[in-house]
């Protein structure tokens, strides 16, 4: 781009940097604030003077949280659902996208099946019938209630099948001539050629399973079976409903809970915050391919 150095353009550049830096700070500072509270002593938090740096630095809250058996149990359930859920999601997405990426010429009922899946984007039974079905299937209070109902991500299938279509047909045709079947063509040619899309979908599947809490809340009858985010929802809402809304500032007990809650919020966010920057390259690519070219 041609550089111009007029005063007007300098002002523009400076204002632009200031604006974007402020926007960035709105995402950075809240996390810093919560982290600072979680690492401060209860007494320091009670004074209400903690900004973005801990006062009376201590790991006490983290020690307490990590020694709570319920926190660790829910963490275990979340890890289990992430592993199981992501494996099932990805297997189904790959297996479903491949046949649907074929042309009608080579897979005649392709359009019928495609509409069978895509129709679920347009219409759904809603929360209550969905809940009743899961109740009748008999998986309430089991890990399957968290994993199976959302196992077929139709948007992911569509994204991957569009990606599959970009793979040169000659690759498939020559493999077919060499006697390869559809399964080996899928796993030996299509999958290695679509790693950015697979990485994107895997990331989203991990994030979705890690973050889901409403399904845990309604499908688990016993709090011992709650995944981490559902467990956290109950403690955060329970603690804040009265305290944060009313003006009851004198609830010192709740104030003391602040450090504990902040520690749990930060621990709940940490795995995601660590993982996503490394996969940024992939998901940006995947999103752009999926939405713009779609």
């Amino acid at each position: 781009m041609v550089a111009d150095k007029t005063i007007g353009s300098r002002i523009f550049v400076i204002a632009n940097y200031i604006f974007l830096t402020l926007i960035t700070l709105t995402c950075l500072l809240p996390i810093c604030h919560v982290l600072a509270i979680s690492l401060s002593s209860k007494a320091a938090v009670a004074t209400g003077n903690i900004k973005f740096w801990p006062v009376d630095f201590t790991f006490a809250s983290y020690q307490l949280v990590l020694s709570k058996s319920q926190f660790l149990t829910s963490m275990g359930i979340t890890v289990k659902r992430v592993v199981l859920g992501v494996l099932i999601n990805m297997l189904i997405v790959v297996l479903t996208a491949y046949p649907l990426s074929k042309e009608v010429r080579s897979f005649r009922p392709r359009s019928i099946f495609a509409w069978f899946f895509v129709f679920t984007i347009f219409f759904s039974g809603g929360l209550i019938p969905g809940y009743i079905i899961i109740y009748y299937v008999g998986i309430i209070d089991t890990i399957w209630a968290l994993v199976l109902p959302g196992a077929v991500q139709v948007f992911s299938v569509v994204l991957l099948l569009n990606f599959f279509r970009g793979i040169p047909r000659e690759l498939e045709e020559s493999a077919f001539m060499d006697g390869a079947g559809h399964f080996s063509i899928l796993f030996k040619i299509f999958l290695p050629a679509s790693l950015p899309a697979i990485a994107t979908l895997t990331l989203f599947s991990i994030v979705t399973h890690w973050n889901s809490w409403f399904d845990g809340l309604i499908y688990m009858n016993t709090p011992e079976n709650y995944p981490l985010q559902s467990y956290m929802q109950t403690i955060i809402v329970k603690m804040d409903q009265q305290f944060m809304r009313g003006a009851s500032k004198d609830l010192i007990k709740s104030l003391n809970e602040q450090t504990l809650k902040s520690a749990q919020v930060f621990l709940g966010a940490l795995p995601i915050l660590v993982v996503y920057p490394f996969l940024q390259k992939y998901f940006v690519k995947g999103i752009v391919l999926g939405s713009v070219k779609g």
Partner: peptide
């Protein structure tokens, strides 16, 4: 093989999506 690949997805969508539409 293409039909086989679709089986798991179809079963799950039938139960959970179309099932709740029926519901």
């Amino acid at each position: 093989p293409l039909y086989f690949m679709l089986v798991p997805g179809i079963i799950l969508v039938l139960i959970f999506s179309y099932g709740s539409m029926f519901g």
